[in-house]
Simulated scan of single mutants.
Amino acid sequence: MQAYVYKSLRKADTYVFLRKRDDFAVLPEPVRAPLGQLAFVLALELDEGRRLARADAGVVRANLAARGFHVQFPPALATVPPADD
């Protein structure tokens, strides 16, 4: 499965995978609006053996097949334990 990856210029470390290049119409407005402008990063083949750095390739493929898009959010910030009182 071919995927096209875009980065959000408004939200750091947030990426959008699309099944079709530049097919932003598949993104619901509540998802699209907070991302701001999207810049093309790369095209890649998401075959069964493909590994991704921050996402499960199987989940990305499933979302692309079902919705036409997948949004990869930044990793959660590490939580700091409360200070001892």
Rank of each mutant, 00 (worst) to 15 (best):
residue 1 M to W: 02
residue 1 M to I: 08
residue 5 V to N: 08
residue 5 V to F: 13
residue 6 Y to N: 04
residue 7 K to V: 08
residue 10 R to L: 12
residue 11 K to W: 11
residue 11 K to N: 12
residue 12 A to H: 01
residue 13 D to H: 14
residue 18 L to Y: 00
residue 21 R to V: 10
residue 22 D to V: 00
residue 23 D to Y: 01
residue 23 D to C: 00
residue 29 E to A: 11
residue 30 P to G: 06
residue 30 P to N: 10
residue 30 P to V: 12
residue 32 R to I: 04
residue 34 P to D: 09
residue 34 P to Y: 09
residue 34 P to H: 05
residue 36 G to F: 15
residue 36 G to I: 05
residue 37 Q to M: 04
residue 38 L to N: 09
residue 39 A to L: 13
residue 41 V to Y: 01
residue 42 L to V: 10
residue 42 L to T: 10
residue 43 A to C: 09
residue 43 A to N: 07
residue 44 L to M: 14
residue 45 E to M: 06
residue 47 D to P: 00
residue 48 E to A: 12
residue 48 E to D: 08
residue 49 G to K: 02
residue 51 R to L: 15
residue 52 L to G: 01
residue 52 L to F: 15
residue 53 A to L: 11
residue 54 R to H: 13
residue 56 D to V: 07
residue 56 D to A: 10
residue 58 G to M: 03
residue 58 G to Q: 09
residue 59 V to R: 07
residue 60 V to N: 10
residue 61 R to C: 12
residue 62 A to E: 09
residue 63 N to H: 14
residue 65 A to G: 05
residue 65 A to F: 05
residue 67 R to N: 05
residue 70 H to K: 11
residue 72 Q to R: 09
residue 72 Q to W: 00
residue 73 F to N: 01
residue 75 P to F: 04
residue 75 P to D: 12
residue 76 A to N: 01
residue 78 A to F: 11
residue 79 T to Y: 03
residue 85 D to K: 13
residue 85 D to F: 09
